[in-house]
């Protein structure tokens, strides 16, 4: 599961969706790996507005990456700053959470990530 994916995920429990604490989910015991993905400037620039930057900063820090700036980079930043582009590309698209758990900050439910796949099926009492 990619870090970019995590930016779109919240708790599967319906009652949690209204709570700010359910997003982003918090990685726990995360084991990371790195894919080799071809860099695509246009795609990154276009994806950027879709990203909840505040949540991404939280996720990035929780995964042990250096702290991200408070404001997201602009398209110009990414075009002119190769290192910034590479770092963001690596964080969002190349970094994979292979094993671990995703924890909801509202209900505390833990979703397992195994072999790179997060499982959001709920036990019957939470459906």
């Amino acid at each position: 599961m990619k870090v970019l994916t995590l930016n779109f995920l919240t708790c599967a429990v319906k009652m949690c969706k209204a709570s700010n604490d359910s997003f982003p989910l918090h990685p726990k015991d995360a084991e990371l790996a790195k894919d080799d993905v071809e860099i695509n400037l246009q795609l990154l620039v276009n994806v950027l507005p879709r990203i909840d930057w505040t949540a991404l900063r939280t996720t990035s820090t929780e995964l042990g990456f250096p702290e991200l700036p408070e404001q997201p980079p602009t398209a110009e930043d990414l075009t002119s700053d190769e290192k910034m582009l590479q770092d963001l590309h690596t964080l969002l698209l190349e970094t994979q959470m292979i094993e671990g758990k995703l924890v909801c900050g509202h209900c505390g439910h833990e979703y397992a990530v195994r072999e790179g796949i997060a499982n959001f099926l709920l036990p019957s009492h939470l459906v």
Binding site: T10, A12, L122, V127
Partner: peptide, 15 residues
């Protein structure tokens, strides 16, 4: 660049 996960369509984990 795509990604996959396991989820029930009636309890989707997307915000």
């Amino acid at each position: 660049i795509s990604d996959v996960l396991v989820a029930d369509g009636l309890s989707l984990p997307f915000r």
